[in-house]
Design a protein around this nucleic acid. Structure first.
Length: 451
DNA sequence: ATCGGCTCGCGCAA
DNA sequence: TGCGCGAAGCCGAT
């Protein structure tokens, strides 16, 4: 029958249990396949002999999300709706803050249990708490994002990858298992099937339209699966040699899919394990996919200051404070940075790659953020600018990976102290010269110019 | 081209 | 209490 590891689940409001319809409140995991939250919700409905619905809350102006990001998400959600319909599961799209729109919807539809997916970000956790306080029915949360549940692998903020790694490896075999299929829902949903006007929805979105849609990547579960297959066949064998060269196209490019939950990291790990590439290569990719990604969730869950200076380690705050007065070699405003008007052609190109394509190369994200620290008057301003730009232009903006990556670059989070120098103090430095030795800067700059 | 030093603190061995 | 070593580096000496 259904095999589900209960450690993926946390429960609130257990006392008020009454049999009745079940809803999966989809938020971070925008997919039909390989989704432990949806699977658990379906099994709960089966146990109760009750129907199942999926509901999504579309929050206008969510953390200033841009049109590019909303369009990508809506495209994927439309496919989710179609896939769910094929399984006889209705999909509701509510517009508004979850705490405002979900409780009335729950009462109207006589929902007697809600299953949500796990998200470590502050605003998402606040939504959960506010909804839980208002609905007064059993509320379950399933970590369908991490392979080993974030709350299980560690109960505290980890100091670095090296402290998370042994914990992760001890538990990995227990959790890295195959998914059962989503079944066709036999018990029908009694209420009238919701109609969603996707075209009108997209037209009326109150999002920043100066950041337009991108065409090089296609949204949705189907496209995500195709990108995964393509990566495994074409790129995985060369991953180690090519990943840090922005001219080689050696990255997986799966992060937008992982961010919107259109693809499950556990699915990626299962398929990579089965792949023909040599073990060392597979381990290098799995290290990034599993350890580094789940370390980012750990950071955001246990450190409420994941996006500001106060979230840095004591040694990092101390050294940055000691270098506040250092003269900056260049000083730029946020606007100058946004318009890629610096003296550095590599930095400008990285910024423009992000503006035009919605995705900056992974290696350059570090260089890019560290230069913002170097060229702004204070580390707080650098953090705010880097997060502003990342969240505005990147398809995977507002992701724990982004916050952890920027905190690593500017605040030494998950890193160690290095040779003390101007502005950076003991935060690891990265230089133009270093990039020059690693890849062909001119070629990259020309490529971005041709976009 | 390659190597050592830089520098902090966690976690484990003893 | 001591010690090894870590999320992707830099720099200067050889």
């Amino acid at each position: 029958m259904f095999s589900f590891n209960k450690n993926r689940l946390t429960t609130s409001n257990k006392a008020n249990d009454a049999n009745g319809p079940v809803a999966y409140w989809m938020s971070r995991e925008q997919r039909n396949a390989d989704n432990w939250a949806l699977l658990w919700a379906q099994d709960l409905a089966r146990q109760r002999g009750a129907p199942l619905a999926v509901v999504f809350c579309l929050v206008p102006e969510f953390l200033h999300a841009s049109f590019r990001q909303y369009a990508f998400m809506l495209q994927g959600l439309q496919e989710v709706q179609e896939n769910l319909a094929a399984k006889n599961i209705p999909f509701y799209l509510l517009t508004g803050r979850p705490e405002d729109v979900l409780p009335p919807w729950q009462r109207q539809n006589n929902i007697q249990a809600i299953v949500a997916d796990f998200d470590p970000l502050r605003i998402k956790r606040a939504w959960r708490e506010n909804v839980v306080a208002k609905v007064k029915i059993p509320f379950y949360e399933v970590d369908a994002h991490n392979i080993v549940p974030c709350l299980i692998v560690s109960a505290k903020q980890e100091y670095g990858a090296y402290t998370l790694r042994p914990k992760m490896h001890r538990m990995l075999e227990e959790y890295l298992e195959e998914f059962p299929p989503l079944r066709r829902q036999s018990l029908p949903w009694k209420a009238k099937k919701p109609q969603i006007d996707w075209v009108k929805l997209k037209q009326t979105l109150a999002a920043d339209r100066s950041v337009g849609e991108v065409s090089w990547i296609k949204s949705g579960e189907k496209a995500a699966q195709a990108a995964l297959s393509d990566f495994i066949v074409q790129k995985l064998p060369h991953y180690v040699q090519r990943r840090n060269d922005p001219n080689q196209g050696g990255q997986s490019n799966l992060s937008p899919y992982l961010h919107f939950g259109q693809l499950s990291a556990q699915r990626v790990a299962l398929e990579v394990r089965k792949a023909a590439a040599d073990q060392e290569t597979k381990n290098a990719f799995l290290e990034e996919l599993i350890i580094r990604r789940e370390l980012a969730d750990n950071f955001c869950l246990y450190n409420p200051d994941y996006d500001n200076f106060a979230g840095f380690s004591a040694w990092a705050q101390k050294t940055l404070n000691e270098h506040r007065g250092d003269p900056r070699p260049y000083l730029y405003s946020r606007e100058q940075l946004e318009q890629a008007q610096t003296h550095d052609d590599l930095w400008n190109a990285a910024q423009m790659e992000m503006v035009k394509r919605g995705k900056m190369h992974g290696y350059l994200r570090m260089y890019w953020a560290k230069k913002i620290l170097e060229w702004m008057p204070a580390p707080e301003e650098a953090m705010a600018a880097a997060i502003y730009l990342n969240d505005k232009y990147e398809l995977d903006g507002r992701d724990p990976n982004g916050y952890a990556g920027i905190a690593w670059s500017i605040g030494g989070v998950h890193d160690r102290a290095w040779n003390e120098r101007n502005v950076f103090g003991k935060i690891r430095y990265m230089s133009y010269k270093g990039c020059q030795a690693k890849f062909n800067i001119k070629k990259y700059v020309e490529w971005v110019g041709s976009l």
